[in-house]
Write a protein that binds this DNA or RNA. Structure first.
Lengths: 107, 107
DNA sequence: TATTTGCGAAACCGAAAAGTTGCATATATA
DNA sequence: TATATATGCAACTTTTCGGTTTCGCAAATA
């Protein structure tokens, strides 16, 4: 199926689920209450999120609690890093321009 | 069409394009050379990237140079922020545990 | 034990995505 | 001016996606 984390967070409902279970584990039924879809649809999303290890399960009787695998989120952060370098560089360049400008005006 | 940046970066080819034009502007033909698809397919991806303002165009004669709109990338960073708080929190908690442990062992 | 509840999986459906081929158009170049 | 080149766009096809409905199974409960 070739799931990756970028595809996982592409869907707005899945981002909603991720946000929901970020702070506390929840069952599929409880999660589904927050969206305008069926529990089965949520279950499908949870499967995708589980497949790419963005979410972990905890069995408790017949209930399954889902929670966010926060470590996996760092993968996006890591990917962003290359671009962060670029925008910080540009900021520094702007900073230099500004400081040069300041020196000139205070002279 | 409801394009958003998360959908835009979901496709691996588009992430490739983004990486490619991050540092220097390129024409569709030049970009297409780097992927195993037709120029038209790349053109379609560029259209999607342009639609969600992740990429900007610069016309130069009959050529069009595409480059990354780095500011837009910050949107992902902003979204990540809520989760960054969580993982930093956990790290701090671990840090406290470790320093407590250290105090005890050095006593 | 019989029934309800929580869940995943499979089958199906319509819409969207990603790719290809075939254009049309504008700009270089011979 | 005739031709080659760079590009976008439209039509079409195949695949994927997100959703619903239906089902089966295991655990709780009456």
């Amino acid at each position: 199926m070739r799931r990756d984390i970028f595809q996982a967070i592409a869907d707005p409902t899945r981002r909603g689920i991720v946000a929901l279970i970020a702070l506390q584990a929840m069952t599929p039924n409880a999660i589904a209450e927050n969206f305008n879809t069926t529990r089965q649809a949520v279950s499908k999303h949870l499967r995708i999120l589980t497949e790419c290890e963005l979410v972990k399960q905890e069995y408790q009787g017949r209930e399954i609690y889902y929670s966010l695998e926060i470590e996996k989120m760092k993968e996006i952060d890591k990917w962003l890093d290359q671009y962060r370098k670029i925008w910080e560089n540009r900021f520094n360049q702007l900073d230099q321009v500004l400081s040069t400008l300041k020196k000139q005006t205070t002279k």
